[in-house]
Design a protein around this nucleic acid. Structure first.
Lengths: 277, 277
DNA sequence: TAATCTAACAACGA
DNA sequence: CTCGTTGTTAGATT
């Protein structure tokens, strides 16, 4: 479940290693994760130079030369290993997709569950990566811009935060504490949020994701060299603490269902004026 | 609530009267029913020739010359008067939209509730009239084509029949008896329908709409000269007969809610194996 | 632990 | 009786 901090860490590593390289090989042990046949994929992307590798929400984007906007877009789904072994190192065993460059690098990807390697032509305006909202840590996303994103929305705040078309990069793992630090219940309807709560959410997003990013991402994920992140869920105040005291007020954390995802909340810090717990 | 039979009757009358005419005037007492300002509308459509007037589902389409696919699209919403008074006749009083032609004809439209007069450029691929399914009485819509439309659909059959993007021209008024004649409960899920039931629905659509069309449409609607149709709801076997015996089997007709629309059914003819009445 | 896309459906607005 | 948008849920994805 790599989210923005992990994706940024991985993409930065890939950019360091691959920017300027030319793709020379693609091997696929699981064709369903592509959006074309392996043969089509090779026609589309091989012999092309990787201009840059950049993170975008939960996606890793390789920009290709020759045609503006052409991308290789990687989504790690609900968890994946993505490795770039050093020259002296043994390549991993059970890859699902392997990408080689003429310069001798190899990217090995093993999806745990539901991941994709897509080719996105520059003129494809409908691919999910074209519909992403602003990155949750985008420099330009100040509190006013964030308030603007919420404008006119009527649904629950957690569904909004997880909707990649609204704001990109937040998944369930970090959502718990983003909401808890702001003292906002996940089921609060957006129009009921006060300016202070909106500012609190904006600050929480930057704090929670920023702290993890500074530590190289969550400790259950690894960078492209296999090194784990140093952000531990121990630092959460409610996330994955069901049945234990809230890190802020001591009230016992409870797990509720919010839409399709489970969510841990502190009933003390995150009251729901409207109705249920 | 004009549906396919009434729309075909009206469109045929307008085509007889206006095909070849050139639009010369547009007056609007209710600008909200346009998809542009009255001034824009005039720029778009005046001085242009009406090539043909054709029915399409519940829409009346004026094809304009000069640019292929350019249309004036009229939707009568939940009921409207649309009149083309004879030369000697007094024009109606309370129009909402009035359209004149250089040749001296005038079309007067009074929307009762939620109707539209839209300009649809030929390159607009997203306007509702571009997304319509095949006309319910389309010559080419044989039983195999109809079965093809149902393929892959999982929802209730009535929601399908009323969805203009699937099949165009059926509204709630005729839907009751289309379902009843085929002995199909409105909430039946499409994948549970047998081949015989699909064939029955196909036949019912043609019978019910065809009978009304042959009679000039429903008797509560009028043609462009103000003459009422001759199709009476008295001939329905279940539609608008709540509390009275089904015209086929004598079981008392009941009104149920099916999704967002009310629907009369015969519990005898239209059992629902799955669950509720 | 965790993601995204589609279809169907309800609620609301116009 | 209309049509459209939004939000919500359920199902599927290999």
């Amino acid at each position: 479940m790599p989210e923005l901090p992990e994706i940024r860490t991985i993409a930065a590593g890939l950019d360091d290693a691959l920017a300027g390289h030319t793709l020379s090989g693609l091997e696929v042990a699981r064709p369903q994760c592509l959006n074309g046949t392996p043969g089509e994929m090779r026609d589309w992307i091989l012999a092309r130079r990787v201009v840059r590798v950049k993170p975008r929400g939960k996606w890793i984007l390789f920009s290709l030369d020759d045609i503006a906007g052409d991308l290789v877009a990687i989504n790690l789904g609900m968890g994946a290993e993505i490795r770039l072994p050093g020259a002296a190192e043994e390549p991993p065993d059970h890859y699902r997709v392997r990408l080689h460059t003429r310069e001798g690098s190899g990217v090995f990807i093993r999806f745990w569950w539901l991941g994709h390697v897509h080719y996105v032509p520059g003129d494809d305006e409908t691919h999910p990566v074209r519909l992403l909202g602003p990155d949750a840590l985008d420099e330009g996303l100040d509190v006013d811009a964030f308030r603007g994103l919420l404008e006119g929305r009527r649904g629950g705040i957690k569904a909004f935060l997880l909707d990649q078309r609204r704001i990109a990069g937040i998944g369930n793992f970090y959502a718990h504490d983003i909401l808890a630090r702001a003292g906002v219940h996940p089921l609060r309807k957006i129009p009921t949020l006060g300016d202070d709560e909106i500012a609190g959410l904006h600050r929480s997003i930057r704090e929670v994701l920023g702290e993890s990013l500074d530590l190289g991402g969550a400790d259950y994920e690894r960078d492209i060299f296999g090194r784990p992140g140093r952000f531990s869920r121990e630092s959460f105040i409610v996330g994955y603490r069901e049945g234990t005291p809230c890190g802020l007020c001591g009230t016992t954390v409870v797990r509720i269902r919010t839409g399709s995802t489970p969510g841990d909340i502190c009933p003390g810090c995150q009251p729901l004026p409207e109705d249920r717990t």
